[in-house]
Design a binder for these strands. Sequence first.
DNA 1: GGAGTCAATGCGAATC
DNA 2: GATTCGCATTGACTCC
Length: 271
Amino acid sequence: MGLDDLYNTSLVLGLGFSSSSTVETTKSNNKVKINSKSELPSLTLSLSGEIYDSTVKKVEFSDNNIKGQYLDNLYRQDSGASSFVSNVSSVKREREMGSEEVVLSSRNLINSTTDEDDDGLINGRKKLRLTKVQSALLEESFKIHSTLNPKQKQELARELKLRPRQVEVWFQNRRARTKLKQTEVDCEFLKKCCESLTDENRRLQKELQELKALKLAQPLYMQLPAATLTMCPSCERIGGGGGAENAAKSNFTMAPKPHFYNPFTNPSAAC
DNA sequence: GGAGTCAATGCGAATC
DNA sequence: GATTCGCATTGACTCC
């Protein structure tokens, strides 16, 4: 099959919705919203060359070179920055978007004839670089909704002159990058939390050690259950049957030094 | 030339 | 069963 056959005689049957309407569905997590107002499915029949640019109605070629250039322009912007080269080997992918099939298959046939063609294609795969305009539009669209429904995908692909699959892949990779970035941010946050908790733990351990040492150094009266010690309401001293003396003798000093008393054993000790 | 970026691929899981 | 997604991976390309 030659280019004449590919380009002039390939008809594309497409099923879609009218461009003036929008679809609305709700997806659980990603908040995809598409308005479903006056949705009218439509069937279109066109030449394969019209797929990526609806403004192109009819193109006639004087020779195969011009035809080839036109084919290239369908897949490339900014001097080759956005070239489509993908071996559509996957059966899964060949199912996608029937209207593109003719063109993709045709291009693939062209590429598959040699390992390297005029564009420097090697094994049918060349790095696609999106143009700034394409990237900007994709980013804008991503800000609005991080996932696309088929209608949005088609629309965006048509605007950007890309395959729907390429738009889909871009969004998948973009989501992956976003997730990776968020993971890195979360990781940093958790690191700081960990450091903070480690410091806090260290401080509390130290405090615990000090309290244990304090307890060992405390006289017996201080080790009484709290319920048995009552602060003297008048002088704010705690009674404790000689505890004060022991406390005074103790090497441990507390400031201000309280007055202990025990109302159960020596109620008169209160001031 | 090695590292990083990013479009593209393949596959399994989930959903309908 | 078809479709879409996430994920791991590949490979082309750029930058230093």
